[in-house]
Amino acid sequence: MASTSKAQMELNPRGIPRAPFVDNVEEYVGGKDAEMDSVIKKFQETSAKYRYMELNLQQRRKALMVKIPDIEQTLSVVSFLDARRRKALGEEEEKDEMDDDDDIDALLDGEEDEDEKDKPLTTLFELNDTLYAEAQVQETGEVGLWLGANTMLMYPLAEASELLSSKLSGAKKNLSEVVEDLEWIREQVTVMEVNFARVHNWDVKRRRDRKTTESHLKQKGDESDDEK
């Protein structure tokens, strides 16, 4: 039982406990005459907890897989606006390691004509899934970011880029941890299924042995009665 307690206390980095593996079933349940209902109930409760955590983590993973592309797209737009403003002000562009640097440079290179240089930025705004409207962007060096709960705040482009980069990094880290936790939980669910099968098979064998023993005792008793 000491090894079982130690296994139960082992946690993953997010505090999810490792399922105890039942090596010696008879010792785990408390002997040959132990009651099995409490053991089976405990296994069912533990498995249900793991299933509940797995469901929550699957929902978190799904939400993050939607959130990360949204942040990446927003960060790309902010980076484009920041690069465009720096170019208009004649400032030296700050090079970063974003994958879409070449795309931003290509967009800016298309605005080299003097006739086009002073024109306002025109783009399409999505009003609905299939409905867009053309609009001119008033470039003030700030951008509005949705923060949730119907809340939008204005940020300078540099601060907006820094904030989005931080959120993107955090979201990717969370996704990596969620995937790791899901793999951990699936391993524990498998362990609990193996435990249940081992305990069930042991109980079936115990009942069979009891039945065989009782049958032999009864047979001997009948033979003793015949001898009398």
Rank of each mutant, 00 (worst) to 15 (best):
17 P>A: 04
97 E>D: 15
193 E>A: 15
173 K>T: 11
147 L>C: 08
205 K>T: 15
121 L>T: 14
16 I>P: 01
76 S>P: 05
139 E>T: 11
205 K>R: 11
124 L>G: 01
24 N>P: 00
60 R>H: 13
135 A>N: 13
134 E>P: 08
42 K>F: 10
61 R>H: 08
117 K>T: 12
173 K>D: 09
36 M>V: 12
90 G>T: 08
62 K>W: 11
111 E>V: 07
12 N>S: 10
112 E>D: 04
137 V>E: 15
31 G>Y: 04
32 K>N: 14
148 G>W: 01
47 S>A: 07
47 S>H: 01
227 E>S: 11
166 S>D: 13
201 N>L: 15
189 V>D: 10
213 T>N: 12
2 A>C: 07
220 K>Y: 14
185 I>Y: 01
173 K>L: 12
11 L>M: 13
218 K>P: 08
219 Q>H: 10
1 M>P: 09
47 S>E: 10
147 L>E: 12
219 Q>L: 10
200 H>N: 09
7 A>T: 05
112 E>W: 01
54 E>P: 02
195 N>A: 01
37 D>H: 03
141 G>A: 10
125 F>R: 07
213 T>Y: 10
129 D>M: 10
102 D>G: 00
99 D>Q: 12
21 F>G: 00
159 E>K: 15
137 V>Y: 15
29 V>T: 00
150 N>D: 11
222 D>V: 03
195 N>W: 02
114 E>N: 06
103 D>G: 01
211 K>Q: 13
34 A>D: 09
106 A>C: 05
219 Q>S: 08
31 G>S: 07
144 G>Y: 12
103 D>Q: 03
182 L>A: 06
132 Y>M: 11
146 W>M: 14
131 L>H: 10
179 V>M: 09
89 L>W: 07
59 Q>W: 05
226 D>A: 14
98 M>V: 14
118 D>G: 07
192 M>A: 01
186 R>S: 14
178 V>I: 06
65 M>F: 06
105 D>V: 06
96 D>P: 05
76 S>W: 00
11 L>E: 13
132 Y>C: 10
58 Q>I: 02
146 W>V: 15
24 N>A: 13
22 V>K: 00
20 P>A: 03
94 E>C: 04
103 D>W: 02
68 I>W: 00
97 E>H: 09
210 R>I: 06
125 F>E: 14
118 D>L: 00
43 F>M: 06
131 L>G: 04
36 M>S: 10
142 E>Y: 10
156 P>C: 05
26 E>W: 03
4 T>A: 12
60 R>E: 15
117 K>C: 04
32 K>F: 12
113 D>N: 03
79 S>F: 08
158 A>D: 09
48 A>M: 04
83 A>L: 07
192 M>L: 09
194 V>W: 04
141 G>R: 04
49 K>A: 14
147 L>I: 01
27 E>G: 08
128 N>H: 08
20 P>G: 00
207 R>S: 12
25 V>N: 02
21 F>T: 05
114 E>P: 00
106 A>D: 09
197 A>V: 04
86 R>P: 13
163 L>T: 05
151 T>C: 06
185 I>L: 03
